[in-house]
Design a protein around this nucleic acid. Sequence first.
DNA 1: AGCACGCCGACT
DNA 2: GTCGGCGTGCTC
Length: 728
Amino acid sequence: MVVIRVALDVPIDTLFDYIAPDAVLQDVGFRVRVPFGKRFMIGIIMAVSHDTQISSDKLKQAETILRDIALPPVLIDLFEFCSRYYHYPIGMVVMNGLPSRMRNVRPLARSSHKLSLFRLTDLGRTIAPSSLSARYKVKQRLLTWLNEVGTINQIEARKISPRAPKILQEMQTQGWLKPVSGTGEPPLEISPFCAVPLTTEQTIAISAIQTEINQFNTWLLHGITGSGKTEVYLQVTSLLLARGKQVLILVPEINLTPQLEAIFRSRFPSTCLISLHSKLTPSERMEGWLQSQRGEASIVLGTRLAIFTPLPKLGLIIVDEEHDQSFKQQDGLRYSARDVAIFRAKQANIPIILGSATPSLESYHNAITGRFRLLRMSTRAVKNAVLPPIHYIDTRTHPLTEGLSEPLLTALDNYLNLQRQSMVFINRRGYAPVLLCKSCAWLASCPRCASRLVVHLKQKALCCHYCGHNEALPLACPQCGDQDLMPFGHGTQRIETALERFFPNARILRVDRDTIRRKGDWQTILDTIHDRKVDILVGTQLLAKGHNFPHLSLVGVLNADASLYSTDFRAEERLFAQLMQVAGRTGRTEIAGEVLIQTEFPDHPLYGALRQHDYDAYARLLLKEREITLFPPFSYQALLNAEAPEMTMALAFLNDANALAKPMNSIEIFDPVPAQMTRLKGLERAHLLVQSPSRKRLQFFLSEWYTKLRQIPNRKVRWALDVDPLEF
DNA sequence: AGCACGCCGACT
DNA sequence: GTCGGCGTGCTC
């Protein structure tokens, strides 16, 4: 009797056995349609066997094995590793990692046009976009793109206009375009053209990686902002493309994809590059997945979900901004794409590069203890570009008007007169974070969360930044009826308004999640900044991440101190990284920049190290503290999260869980406590922390504990384990 | 997660 | 009498 073991998208941590008379060993990895309870489901065959533990009266027969696309064995191993390490049901791990389109039985037709990639013919190159009449706006934009980037695919075209695919066909019949086959043949341009000579540090980094290009190594590329990490990525990528290998590049945020994509595309114009992220339609994602799986896509660039892409010829993984929290998924399968990437590189025996100006303390510790190989780049790549001086404005002696100090306003005025760009950074969107009634001290709070509602004056609304709850801005206090409601504190909208008053002639642009949504396009904002159509930028950390603004001279930081009081032991690490990133936005060209930070604690060691741009000194200081307190990276943690309608239920569950835990050597279990965000979306939340100096022992403990936890009869409590948690 | 069964209250 | 509330239990 032939039995197949199937992974199904259900929250039960087991595989399901089915009789499949026609199954063979080679069917592992194929999809299969099976009866499950009263319905049918699509699953993945994880194993083929001759015996089963399941009694024959329960055993059903599989309906059809869909032998169209198979998951390669390495991907199955990867899923199994994730299920084991993160203690999450195997079927849900598998389905989380695959395009949703695969759950559909509809044949995965390869629509012919999706593959096509176009480039200009010699005739096409002679046509200036501006020579076309304004009636052909789409055609103009397609030509401009092609002139700048070299190639265009269907997905990019559709972003320009929904009619673009048709117009591309038209341009092809006009003889302006020719299709390029994306069949993964080695690129014509093997060594990429680099306009600027490499720095010594770049050369050293590249040749170090090059000498061990065929084996597993975790390289920590610790390069200050502007030191040219991207150039190192490009050069190492070209080495592997020349060997016919595939390269996987992970970026933290979707906003960073287009930028890096454009750089890679212009450097490797005839190489098939695809980008994978959550904004693609299910079909687009499926198509990208298939191109990767067939080995046609040579460069795969994407957010954390891209780590589960099948890549038969994988030769290198790059994780850019490796310290970024976005690599950790915060719900469902709580995986760290960076850590999974390291596993994957080891599995494939290939190098992995973790790049950052401010590495996570975990990675930094691994580098100085020799587990990772450290590559440093401490000078800026552009000649004469220097790191900007950082000054502090003591807000105890400099009073604030609308959140802004007089020295900062003077500096803004100076740079405005010099026609240089400035940026004011405040990590809080909206107008004011609190709405307060002056007569009865009522505070606007979210009905579903333990959070304050944020005033959004322009939309005349109160918003919860955790659950999205939105209500009209009240005219009077709902508690006492007094009309004296006061917005308290400052957000980007309020700073924008204040700056408009202080500098009526300046062109001010606010950049945060709200304006991105409204304008619909991050790219147009970037263009506006690059074309110097803006004098003062006001924004959140969205502005800080990875972007290069050559005309920026002044960076002002408001409200940085908030993180210094945080109970989160990683808050300082994050604040330091964030301020280093913000400071790095300026002085990237020959023209020196300047950073002004408003703070109540200018003598805090964090600010001292920041002034020196000394990541190492501060990282070592933080590591000392972590060593004494036995926090990560000197211990490994797991969090048991529970949520329920009542806090008592959540805590009761955690107490039961605690009682079930077998006391073990070098495993420390803390008491259950309410989560930082006590209530979220109407559910009360609590957790229990487990800590151990040994990752192995922690894993051993968790495996045993998890099997017991699964047997607790499920009351109204939803629970999940978070291994290596970043949020508490 | 679905989807059943099952046992109590308020309706045509 | 039965429609429907959601507690409990199972899915190979």
